[in-house]
C-alpha cells in the first residue's frame, strides 16, 4: 500500500518543485480580503470538482465498473441550476432540483448496469452523449449567466479556504469513514472481484452497484455546481467537458485497479491534486499551448511507468544488484 502511494507523492512534489524553480513565489500564500490567496489555493479550488468526481468514480471502479457520464451530468446540474435562478428562482431550491435530477440520472445508470446487466462503459456512454443534449435543451443552446451571491459561494466562495475544496474534503472524509470503518468497503471490493461469488456469499451485489452509480452521479452534480458557480454561468457545451477522463486518470494514478476490487481514497486525492497541479504548472511556467498536451502526456506516462509492476520489478532488481 505504501509503495503504491510513494510514486504519486514523488510526482506531486516534483511538479511543485518545478514550479518553485521557475516561479520562486509559487508557494507564497497571503491573506486577501479575508481569504487565502496564492497558487496553492488555486490548485485546491480548481482541483475540487475533479477530486469530487474522482471520489465517485473510485467506488464505481472498485465494483469493476466505470462511469463515463459524469461530465454530462455535471453540465446538466449547472444548466438546471442557472436556468432556474435566471428565471427568478431561489438558488438553494435550484441546487436541490439539480441534485434531485442528477440522482435520477444515477438511478438510470445503475439500473442499466445492475438490473439489465449492460456493460458499464456502454451503459454510461448513453448518458455521456445524451446528457449534453439534455443540458443544451435546458439552456436552449445559450450560456446562461446568473448573478446570485449565495450560488457564487459554492465554487468561488471562501471560508478562509475555498468552500469548494472544503466540500470535496468533507465528502472524502465521509466516504472514508463509511467504507473503511464499516464493512461496506470490503463488500464493494468483493463485488468488484467477483459479483456472482459475493452474491452467493450473501452480499447484495445489485444494491451495492446501484448505490455507487447514484453516488457517482451526485458527486458529479455537486462538481457541476462548483464549475458553473465558479464563473456564475452555465455553459452546456463546455462545462465538465472531458472531466470523466481526468477523474479516471486520477483514480488510476492513485493506484486503484481498473479491474475492480481494490481502491485507495488517499490515492485518488493524490491523483486529483497531481492533475490539477499539472494544469496550473502548464499555465505558470508558460508552456506553449501547442505542446501542452504532449507535456501532460509525458508526466502521466512517467507516473504510470513508476507504478507499473514492470517498473517496480526493474527497480527491485537494480537494488538487489548492489552487493549487500
Amino acid at each position: 500500500m505504501k509503495n503504491r502511494l510513494l510514486w504519486p507523492v514523488v510526482a506531486l512534489v516534483a511538479l511543485l518543485m518545478l514550479n518553485v524553480v521557475v516561479t520562486p513565489s509559487f508557494f507564497s500564500v497571503r491573506l486577501q480580503d479575508g481569504h487565502l490567496y496564492g497558487s496553492l489555493i488555486d490548485i485546491l479550488r480548481n482541483g475540487a470538482p475533479t477530486l469530487l468526481i474522482a471520489l465517485g468514480m473510485t467506488l464505481v471502479i472498485a465494483t469493476r465498473g466505470i462511469d463515463l457520464s459524469v461530465g454530462a451530468v455535471a453540465a446538466i446540474a449547472g444548466a438546471v441550476t442557472c436556468t432556474h435562478i435566471a428565471s427568478g428562482g431561489n438558488a438553494w431550491v435550484a441546487m436541490g432540483l439539480a441534485l434531485a435530477l442528477c440522482a435520477v440520472l444515477g438511478l438510470w445508470n445503475g439500473f442499466l448496469v445492475s438490473v439489465l446487466g449492460i456493460q458499464p462503459i456502454i451503459a454510461t456512454l448513453v448518458l455521456m452523449t445524451a446528457g449534453r443534449g439534455i443540458a443544451m435543451l435546458i439552456t436552449e443552446g445559450q450560456i446562461i449567466t446568473v448573478n446570485d451571491d449565495s450560488y457564487r459561494q459554492v465554487g468561488a466562495g471562501f471560508l478562509v479556504l475555498p468552500i469548494a475544496i472544503l466540500i470535496s474534503l468533507a465528502v472524502l472524509g465521509l466516504v472514508a469513514l463509511v467504507t473503511r470503518r464499516t464493512a461496506l468497503g470490503l463488500l464493494i471490493e468483493s463485488v468488484g472481484v467477483n459479483p456472482s461469488a459475493s452474491r452467493l456469499a450473501g452480499v447484495r451485489a445489485r444494491t451495492i452497484i446501484w448505490t455507487v452509480y447514484v453516488f457517482a452521479a451526485l458527486c458529479a452534480a455537486v462538481a457541476g455546481l462548483m464549475i458553473s458557480s465558479n464563473v456564475s454561468a452555465a455553459d452546456a457545451n463546455n462545462a465538465g467537458l472531458w472531466i470523466e477522463m481526468d477523474a479516471i486518470l486520477a483514480v488510476v494514478i492513485g493506484g486503484t485497479s481498473l479491474a475492480g476490487g481494490r481502491y485507495s481514497l488517499t490515492g485518488t486525492l493524490l491523483g486529483a491534486l497531481i492533475i490539477q497541479t499539472l494544469t496550473t504548472t502548464v499555465y505558470t511556467i508558460g508552456i506553449a499551448p501547442e505542446i501542452t498536451l504532449v507535456f501532460k502526456a509525458i508526466v502521466v506516462i512517467a507516473v504510470c511507468l513508476m507504478q507499473a509492476p514492470v517498473g517496480i520489478r526493474v527497480r527491485v532488481r537494480g537494488k538487489q544488484g548492489v552487493p549487500a
Binding site: S25, G38, S39, D42, V231, D235, N238, Y283, T284
Partner: peptide
C-alpha cells in the same frame, strides 16, 4: 509577456488568468 489557451470558455479564461496573476 504570456499567452495561453483558454479554449474560448469562461472557466478556461478564469483558470489561466489566475495562474498569470501569480506568475
Amino acid at each position: 509577456v504570456a499567452t495561453q489557451t483558454g479554449d474560448f470558455t469562461r472557466s478556461g479564461g478564469k483558470q489561466v488568468m489566475e495562474a498569470f496573476l501569480k506568475s
